[in-house]
Amino acid sequence: MPRLAVLSAMAGAALWGTIGPVASLFTDRERLAYGGIRLAIGACALFALGGRPFTRAWRRHDVLPLLAAALGLAGFQLSYFAAVGTSGVAISTAVAIGLAPVLTGGWTATAGRQRPTGWWLAGTALAAFGLALLMLSGSADVSLSPKGLALSTVAAACFSLQALSIKHLTDRHADTVVLTAMFAIAALLLTPMTIAHATPSLLTGKAVLSLLYLGTVTAGVSYWLFAYGIRHLGAPAAVTISLLEPACATAIAALLLGEHMTASQWVGIGLVCGAIVLTTIPTRTNEPVAVLVRSAP
C-alpha cells in the first residue's frame, strides 16, 4: 500500500507540473480569473468521481478543518500569484514550494509530540537544496523583496494547511467527498476575484479546452491522487513528494518547449527525485519513515 501511495502522490505532483505550460497561454490578468474557474471545474470533476459532500451530515468538529482546507487552497492561489508578480517565478516557487514540507513536518511533529525521523529530514533537506538549484541557477533575474518573500511564505503556509486538513478529514471521510467540498468552498471564496478579472477571451475555444484540462486533470484528478498519498503516507511525506511538481514543469519546458536548462538545473531535478526515495524508505516495521505521527481517532 505505501508504494502505491508514493506513486499516487508522485503522479499528482507530475500532473501539477503541466500547469505552467498551459497557463502560459493566458495573460497575467486572465491567470487571476482562471484560478477560480479551475477550482470550480475541479469540484465538478471530483463530483463525477463520486464526491457527494452534501448528501451526508458533517460533524461539528469537521467544519473547521474543511474551512481550513478551502482557505488553504484559495489562499495558496492568491498569495503565490501575488508573490510571482512581486519576486518572479524562481524565488517565489523556491520559497513557497520548498518551505511547505518543512512547515508541514514541523507542525505534525509538534502536534504529535514526536521528532521527525532522520530519513524524512534528510530527504526534505536534499529536496529543498535540489529545488534551489532547479529554480535559481537558471534565473538571471532574481528579485529578493520583503513583500515577495512574505507572500511566498504565506503561500507555503497555505499549502501546508490544506495538506494537514486533508489528512485530518480523510481519516473519517472518503477522499472524493472531502475534496469536492473543499474545492466548491474555495471556488466560492475566489468568485469575486474571478469575476473581476475574467475577460471575453476566456470563452474562446482554446481557452475553454485549456480550462477544462486545468480543472479536470491538474485540479480534480491530481488532488485525488495527492489525497490518496496523504491518507496512506501522511501529510509531511506527501508534501515533500509534491516537490516533484517544479521538477516536472522544468523538464517539460526543456524537452517539449525547447527552453534552455543549465547543468545545475538537471542536477536539481535529480536531487529532488533522489529525495523522494529517501522519504519513503521503510522502517523496521515496514512503515514509511516519512509518516511522523498518526492522527488521533
Rank of each mutant, 00 (worst) to 15 (best):
G148W: 06
G148P: 11
L149G: 09
A150Q: 12
L151Y: 04
S152M: 07
S152N: 07
T153F: 15
V154G: 04
A155D: 00
A155E: 02
A156D: 04
A156C: 06
A157Q: 07
A157R: 06
A157T: 11
C158Y: 06
C158F: 09
F159I: 05
F159E: 03
L161F: 05
A163E: 12
A163H: 13
L164S: 12
S165F: 07
I166G: 05
I166V: 15
K167R: 15
K167F: 08
K167T: 07
H168W: 09
H168P: 02
H168I: 08
H168G: 05
H168S: 11
H168C: 09
H168Y: 09
L169V: 10
L169S: 09
T170G: 04
T170I: 08
R172A: 07
R172I: 00
R172M: 00
R172G: 06
H173G: 00
A174W: 04
D175S: 12
D175H: 13
V177M: 10
V177S: 09
V177H: 09
L179V: 03
L179I: 07
L179S: 01
T180G: 00
T180H: 01
T180M: 01
M182Q: 09
M182R: 06
F183V: 02
F183I: 01
A184Y: 01
A184P: 00
I185G: 11
I185S: 07
I185E: 05
I185Y: 07
A187Y: 07
L188G: 15
L188N: 10
L189H: 03
L189R: 05
L189F: 12
L190C: 07
T191I: 14
T191L: 15
P192Q: 15
P192T: 15
M193Q: 14
T194L: 05
A196D: 12
A196T: 06
A196S: 13
H197K: 06
H197S: 05
H197V: 02
A198Y: 00
T199P: 06
P200V: 12
S201F: 09
L202V: 08
L202C: 10
L203A: 15
T204W: 04
G205F: 15
K206Y: 13
K206T: 14
A207R: 04
V208D: 00
S210W: 00
S210C: 09
S210R: 04
L211W: 03
L211S: 03
L211N: 03
L211M: 12
L212S: 10
L214I: 06
G215A: 02
T216W: 06
V217C: 02
T218C: 03
T218V: 02
T218Y: 00
T218I: 03
A219V: 06
A219M: 08
G220F: 02
G220Y: 02
G220V: 01
G220S: 04
V221E: 02
V221K: 01
V221Q: 01
V221H: 01
S222N: 00
S222D: 01
S222Q: 03
Y223T: 02
Y223K: 02
Y223S: 03
L225V: 05
L225D: 03
F226Q: 09
F226Y: 15
A227M: 13
A227W: 06
Y228C: 04
Y228M: 14
Y228K: 13
Y228N: 11
Y228H: 15
G229C: 14
G229E: 14
I230C: 09
I230F: 07
R231D: 14
H232K: 15
L233E: 11
L233Y: 13
L233F: 15
G234P: 04
A235R: 11
A235P: 12
P236A: 10
P236K: 08
